[in-house]
């Protein structure tokens, strides 16, 4: 594994670098927890790595809250999320995805930009962000643009980024004004409990009002299709329903709707059969858990 390393200290410097590298092969590096492994496996000749982790930019590295959204810089690490109590409160799904990623050591350096741009079908933080219907802010030598995260992925390891562009920020829409209760969590299934690449994952964020009505919901599934997918039909199925009216039958119908979005592969971690079966069971379990809560309320 051989590469040249450039360490820009600001975006101004970065864009100068990118201009210079216009006709060269380059890749970005942030926490390096994906890219180094990738390059070790498939070394690339004459490669330059542009290191983003020394860029001094408040927005790129920080988490901020506006009235209608939370903005996360692409350089925010998994541990930054874990330490942020606001996120834990507003978006448990995202907090749990970050908290269950790899191990303490990896979380210290792994960034959300890296998690998204690796475009792995099993990216945990990415899966949570898809369920939250986040938006990606892309900057580049030709300016700035925004794209919904669910449209960001074009295939396994393929994103909508063009040469000269990079991911700058992620915007998560705020929860609805009359949301009083959240069912929001990240479920990750693998063989062991840490240092695990998801074999099946589901991120969900369900917002409920004071009358137990589901105001809106987001579901995303990971590791069961070429890209992480937002299961819109399943969301539509439960949106506006009263949780007290949900039945076991609904749980099954819901799970079937989620399953429509999956198209898993068989690999050394699990077979297609297993991924499909578990996805179905887990989807069902989300509604079942809500049903259990309704009994508790009564």
């Amino acid at each position: 594994m051989n590469f040249e390393l450039i360490n820009p200290q600001s975006f101004k410097e970065l864009f100068l670098v990118l201009k210079k590298l216009k006709h060269r092969k380059y890749r970005y590096a942030a926490g390096c927890t994906d890219i180094l492994i990738e390059l070790k496996r498939n070394p690339e000749d004459d490669l330059t790595l542009v290191n983003l982790s020394q860029i001094n930019d408040f927005k790129f590295r920080g988490i901020s809250q506006t009235k209608n959204s939370v903005r996360l810089g692409a350089g925010v690490t998994a541990n930054d999320i874990v330490r942020n109590l606001n996120i834990k409160l507003l978006y448990p799904v995202l907090w749990e995805a970050a908290y269950n990623l790899a191990s303490t050591q990896i979380r210290q350096v792994a960034t959300i930009g890296g998690n998204i741009c690796t475009a792995s079908p099993s990216g945990d933080i990415t899966c949570a962000l898809v369920s939250l219907d986040a938006t990606c802010v892309i900057i580049g030598v030709h300016g700035k643009r925004e794209i919904r995260i669910r449209d960001f992925f074009e295939g396994p390891r393929q994103t909508a980024l063009k040469k000269g562009e990079l991911l700058y920020e992620i915007i998560i829409p705020g929860n609805k004004k009359n949301t009083v209760k959240l069912f929001s969590s990240f479920i990750k299934i693998g063989t062991r409990r840490s240092m695990e690449c998801s074999v099946v994952s589901i991120a969900y964020h369900i917002q409920i009002d004071g009358f137990n009505k589901i105001l809106t919901s987001g579901f995303a599934i990971g590791a069961v299709a070429p890209t992480i997918r937002f299961t819109a039909k399943a969301c539509d199925f439960i949106n506006r329903k009263n949780i007290n009216a949900l039945t076991e039958r609904d749980a099954e119908s819901f799970a079937l709707k989620v399953s429509e979005y999956s198209d898993p592969i068989s690999d050394i971690r699990a077979t297609r059969w297993y991924r499909e079966k578990v996805l179905f069971n887990l989807s069902k379990s989300i509604i079942e858990d809500i049903i259990k809560c309704q009994i508790e309320v009564k």
């Binding site: 062991r192 409990r193 840490s194 240092m195 690449c197 050394i268």
Partner: peptide, 11 residues
């Protein structure tokens, strides 16, 4: 060690 799985501290 990614795919040869030994139990971790959390197991």
């Amino acid at each position: 060690f990614h795919n040869y799985k030994i139990p971790t501290a959390s197991d």
